[in-house]
Amino acid sequence: MEFRVLQYFLAVVREESITRAAEVLHITQPTLSRQLAQLEEELGVNLFSREKRKIALTNEGVLLRRRAEEIIELIDKTERELLEEEALIDGVVSFGCGELASVQVLSDFIKSFHQKYPRVRYDLYTANADQIKDRMDRGLTDIGLLLEPVNIEKYDYIRLNVKERWVVLMPPDDELAKKDYVTAEDLKNLPMIITRRTSLRNELASWFGDYFKSLNIVFSHSMSTNAAIMVRNGLGYALVIEGAIPFWDKSKICYKPLYPEITATTVLAWKRQQPFSLATTEFIRHVKCLLGINK
């Protein structure tokens, strides 16, 4: 006996007509009649006494109506309770991330999760991947959005389909601002501000090639916004991930892509076999569901 067929049965009871019930249910009258006949055959009883002007219930039909109404009420109550249980999930989910384009994807995940669990709150810590991993290892941050290359052997993760592009920052009136892109040769004799992360420095060293050995590095940075302040004050040209730069004031800072292009990917990672709060566990499950990941 299917739940759907019980709904069909109750619709006929309410309308006292198969034709009117079919219209209400948006199915054809022959389809509805066939479903009712199959129900009677399955139960081995007659549910209706078909009179001239309307359909009346037999004693067996009256019993089924009572039970069907109880079943549907119980299912509706269960669905409401499950929704209420979801809404009761609260707590804090803590994230760590850099100034990355993939933060937009993370915000989309959080937005849809917050609609489902409005009582949950969020903590966002901004730093580089090494600092975020340290906080994750100490249990201070639940989930990290990490720029690769990064060692994630201790973590479960999801690699996001977002391209993070390296660019160079300069004042808007700089000669390099007139170019469509900037090469290693363009930068070889200029004061440079570059990332302090060793793995990312290795990526840049590969891009610069032989120029890197004699590069004039005047500053190291871990956040592109701070690097931009140094650029505005004429202290150098900063190599950063594009990330949040499109939201900055273009009259105060300019950026150009590198050529050949350097790009990176990001992973959404969390400590393997780490006990998490219910809110964090549900958030991870929510993201996997959105991305079609079953494990």
Rank of each mutant, 00 (worst) to 15 (best):
L32Q: 04
D108R: 13
N189S: 11
A56V: 13
E42N: 13
L140Q: 12
L6N: 10
Y125L: 12
A238I: 05
R285L: 01
A56D: 14
T58L: 03
T31A: 15
E42A: 14
Q131S: 15
Y117Q: 05
N59Q: 14
Y117E: 03
G98D: 00
K163Q: 13
V93G: 00
R138H: 10
G292Y: 04
L32V: 11
T19N: 14
F9E: 03
I194C: 01
G209S: 08
Y117V: 03
L290N: 07
Y157W: 13
A184N: 05
D173G: 04
E99A: 02
K213F: 09
L6H: 06
T280V: 02
E2I: 12
K295H: 12
P257V: 09
S107Y: 12
V287G: 00
A68R: 04
G292N: 00
R34G: 07
R119H: 09
V103D: 09
E175T: 07
A127M: 05
A87F: 01
L39P: 08
W207E: 06
C289N: 14
F283T: 06
R4N: 13
P257Q: 05
E203Q: 09
R285I: 07
G44I: 11
K213S: 14
H114L: 02
Y157V: 05
S33D: 11
A37G: 11
Y157A: 12
E164L: 00
G98F: 04
E153V: 13
Y122R: 01
Q38S: 15
E70V: 08
V218D: 07
L215M: 13
Y117L: 09
A68T: 03
R80E: 10
P191N: 08
S251L: 09
A279F: 01
N226R: 14
E79C: 00
A205C: 05
R119M: 09
L88H: 10
D186K: 03
F219D: 04
R53H: 15
K179E: 11
P149R: 02
G61Q: 01
A56N: 14
L106D: 06
I72N: 04
R65Q: 15
R197W: 03
A22P: 05
R119W: 00
F113T: 04
